[in-house]
């Protein structure tokens, strides 16, 4: 049998267990990486600490390579994996708004939960804001819906968009990540006294 496992067929216990275990491992990884620390996270935007970039892009590259290899070996059925859909404008604008909130708040939602769980009261305030903002968004949804559903794109993935083989795009991402790591190490050395 090839992955993904048909969880719906394995019942509510597997559903809950997979969520709790994978979530638990997610929380451990974020906390160990130091991503529950607002000054470390925001160091990304002041050129002093590139942990956000390094952790995130190492994770993306690891998972991306894993999916490519397991797919090529026939161990995972790629067509059954969820690819987040593309709505160009709302996602571009959403990213801009999110970036402002990130530097203002000091955490993103996942790292905010990590920080709150390790005793940080400012992260608790951020999570409260997150719930409030989500409620406001929901109340305003009928007016935002036109924009929310604007500019859907048929191309779901970068290989489809560029008309390239998946291997070529994966290689490109790996090269970009390695170059980024080199720049990050250089800038960190320069900023440390």
């Amino acid at each position: 049998m090839s992955a993904p496992l048909p969880l719906d067929a394995t019942g509510p216990v597997a559903h809950a267990a997979s969520a709790l275990l994978l979530g638990g491992a997610f929380g451990v990884a974020l906390e160990r990486a130091g991503l529950g620390d607002a000054r470390k996270l925001t160091g990304q935007f002041y050129g002093t600490d590139f942990a956000v970039f390094k952790v995130m892009f190492t994770a993306i590259v690891t998972c991306m390579l894993g999916l490519l290899v397991l797919g090529a070996l026939g161990l995972v059925n790629r067509t059954r994996l969820v690819v987040p859909p593309t709505y160009l404008l709302p996602q571009a604008v959403g990213g801009l708004i999110f970036g402002v909130g990130f530097v203002l708040g000091g955490y993103c939602p996942g790292t905010g939960c990590t920080a709150a769980a390790s005793g940080r009261l400012d992260a608790l305030a951020l999570v409260a804001g997150l719930l409030g903002g989500t409620w406001l968004f929901g109340e305003a949804f009928s007016r935002l819906r036109g924009f929310y559903e604007a500019t859907p794109m048929a191309a779901r993935t970068l290989p489809e968009l560029f008309g390239l083989a998946e291997g070529a795009v994966v290689a490109g991402v790996v090269v970009l990540a390695l170059a980024g790591f080199g720049v990050a190490e250089h800038l960190e050395r320069r900023s440390s006294p």
Binding site: Q91, C108, P109, L126, G129, L130
Partner: peptide, 13 residues
């Protein structure tokens, strides 16, 4: 920051 970020996240899905 959390309030602003929630709008960005929901717009972006």
């Amino acid at each position: 920051g959390g309030t602003v970020m929630a709008f960005g996240a929901r717009l972006a899905r």
